[in-house]
């Protein structure tokens, strides 16, 4: 290509070849980078584990998600969702759903961790996706809780509420409470974006910041209420209800008591 000095000298196929080369390079680079987020666990999934996963999937998941996880009218495709999504959805009991609803609710999980791992390995075999995070990824022992609070308020509180109590979204959807979420589940939710939640990739929230957020949520889960009963940490609505029932009620009871003597 050293002798190219003008467009007339270019071969007619050069454009197509160049495009092909560029696409191949990009594709290869993408494959290399994305394979990084597939955890070694799913890569090292044994054939035995995948076999168990396949059996469980066919029994419990395929009626909505399709026999090959391709999805259908009642469930989305699971190709490329990754093991982390399965671990989150099944591990929090959201999947399998009890009934068709706007959103799957957190409930006691149906499968044990071994079965969940098998399901995750099987679903991960459909296509590359985020793998189950390693405990070191969601370890928050060295995290900065105050910084986590700032990132939480900026990215999370608009749906999950300032205290992690959850909040309403449109059309019956909701951001659930994070009061019961484990550090692993919080991490998985951020990297997989379950249900209405957006994905917070490492490009948006670096792994270190994710640990800070987990530290803040852990604080919220265990935070004392120095002011006394927190009334559900729901803000002024419950304060109002308390005021007009218990507090005003008590005062009116006293007025009646004082007034009653004279009648």
């Amino acid at each position: 290509m050293a002798n190219i000095s003008g467009s007339s000298r270019r071969r007619p196929y050069a454009g197509a070849v160049l495009l092909l080369a560029a696409l191949t390079t990009t594709g290869a680079a993408y494959a290399v980078t994305t394979s990084a987020i597939v955890s070694p666990k799913s890569a090292a999934a044994s054939a035995e584990q995948i076999e168990l996963g396949k059996r469980l999937f066919t029994e419990g998941c395929s009626s909505c998600h399709g026999l090959a996880g391709q999805g259908g009218s009642s469930g989305p495709s699971l190709i490329g969702v990754g093991a982390a999504a399965v671990d989150f959805q099944v591990g929090t009991g959201r999947m399998p759903m009890a009934q068709a609803d706007t959103q799957a609710m957190r409930k006691p999980p149906v499968y044990n961790q071994e079965q969940i791992d098998a399901l995750a390995a099987y679903v991960a075999s459909f296509g590359a996706g985020p793998g189950v995070p390693d405990p070191s990824q969601y370890d928050f022992s060295n995290a900065n809780v105050a910084r986590g609070g700032e990132i939480y308020r900026l990215n999370c509180s608009q749906c999950h509420n300032y205290a992690g109590k959850g909040g309403a979204l449109s059309d019956g959807k909701y951001a659930p409470s994070v009061m019961k979420a484990t550090p692993k589940q919080i991490y998985e939710a951020m990297i997989t974006g379950p249900q209405g939640m957006p994905v917070f990739s490492d490009a948006q929230i670096p792994a270190k910041d994710k640990q800070d957020i987990i530290a803040y949520i852990d604080y919220l889960q265990n935070a004392p209420d120095p002011g006394g009963a927190a009334l559900g940490r729901l803000g002024p609505v419950t304060e109002t209800v308390f005021m007009f029932t218990a507090a005003i009620g008590a005062v009116i009871a006293v007025t009646i008591w004082i007034g009653a003597k004279s009648r």
Binding site: R153, L154, Y162, A163, A175, D225, G227, A229, P236, E239
Partner: peptide, 30 residues
């Protein structure tokens, strides 16, 4: 008695105001 037993407006939980942040379930006083 109520003030000693029941929390109201836990500002430390809300955090400081910046215009780019908001919490779900933001209501004013009654």
């Amino acid at each position: 008695l109520i003030s000693a037993l029941v929390s109201i407006n836990p500002v430390w939980m809300f955090g400081p105001y910046t215009p780019d942040q908001v919490s779900a379930g933001s209501q004013p006083d009654w």
